[in-house]
Design a protein around this nucleic acid. Structure first.
Lengths: 187, 187
DNA sequence: ACCTGAACACCGTTCAAGT
DNA sequence: ACCTGAACACCGTTCAAGT
């Protein structure tokens, strides 16, 4: 029997093993041994399916409590990077979900809570979120361009990964430092 | 006679008037009164065409010189926002181009030059670029979701636009302030 | 209730053949 | 040199009909 959960799981596998370009409803149906139309009994649209996939990608990301907000945010950023780098094009999928329904994804709702104290509507956390997703999407795109041979690697794979990790941490720190310097206005 | 320029111009019009979802090679061909295959004599791929479209979208963005780097960056950010908001989904198109060939688009190359003094490889400017493109893509996505009625508007259109402008400037200022606080490491 | 079969209205890209 | 015609290998989504 088909179910939303089985469909989302199949989507996760195809994304991990083949990337977003290969993640079609028809491909998913083939993987599950059904006709393409059958998916629409369990899932309203591909967009909704991708949102569910983003939820799975971000499931159980731990949030540190009882620490300075900036430290918790920094840790979440590093955890997010670590999680997403394991699955091809995952930053793109999370970006789509966040664009569709801002702050509905749990880790981003948490980030808003700790960084913006429920003020205004997440001005500070949005800066960090856009940087994180943009940087990770670029990193994933470049690494698949390199491994497909479409573009030459400047350094060894490990050197590239280390460099990306440093750049990511640098950006996160710069943003958290800037947010501390320019406090959020009164709600 | 067809030409790369005429094709890119047609792409610009379709993007402005109908959005990225309607921007297909077949649609472009219809608009130009030719068969779809004819486009491939003048343009190697859709990806390359979108890159050309991004160049047109960013053409002649003025760069302020002879001022503090942060002021020049801030002005460029506001100019970029103003330019992109005039064309549906343009931030998405520019993002694709920047992912494909980082810093090949003139305004981003300039931004790197003034913010990172040609050090390392644009750590600081990347933070700003990812924020700008992410924030603008979200703003454009939300405004088309609202105008298509898929999602209800929280405020009046002008209030939404003003709010978005303030949030954008806030993010730019926070980032520039953070970059000043955490100077780029030695190259 | 759940799925098949088949259709509708599309895609990007290639390439022999025409002019 | 430049374009047509036609194909190849796909898309997301809908829906009558079957079980």
């Amino acid at each position: 029997m088909l179910s939303r959960e089985r469909i989302v799981d199949a989507a996760f596998s195809v994304l991990r093993d083949y990337g977003l370009a290969d993640l079609s409803m028809r491909r998913l149906a083939k993987e599950l041994g059904v006709q393409a139309g059958a998916l629409y009994w369990h899932v309203p649209s591909k967009q909704d399916l991708l949102y569910g996939l983003a939820e799975v990608l971000l499931a159980d990301l731990p949030i540190a409590e009882q620490v300075p907000p900036a430290d918790a945010a920094r840790q979440l950023a590093l955890d997010l990077r670590h999680r997403l780098l394991g699955v091809q094009d995952s930053a793109e999928v999370v970006s789509l979900a966040q664009a569709l329904a801002p702050y509905r994804l749990a880790p981003f709702a948490e980030l808003r809570r700790i960084l913006d104290q429920d003020a205004v509507e997440g001005r500070g956390s949005r800066v960090l979120i856009h940087f994180m997703l943009g940087a990770l999407a670029e990193e994933q795109t470049r690494s698949s361009l390199i491994s497909s041979g479409a573009v030459p690697a400047a350094d060894s794979p490990t050197a590239v990964a280390e460099h990306a990790a440093e750049d990511f941490a640098f950006g996160v720190d710069a943003i958290l430092s800037g947010l501390a310097a320019i406090p959020a206005p009164r709600a």
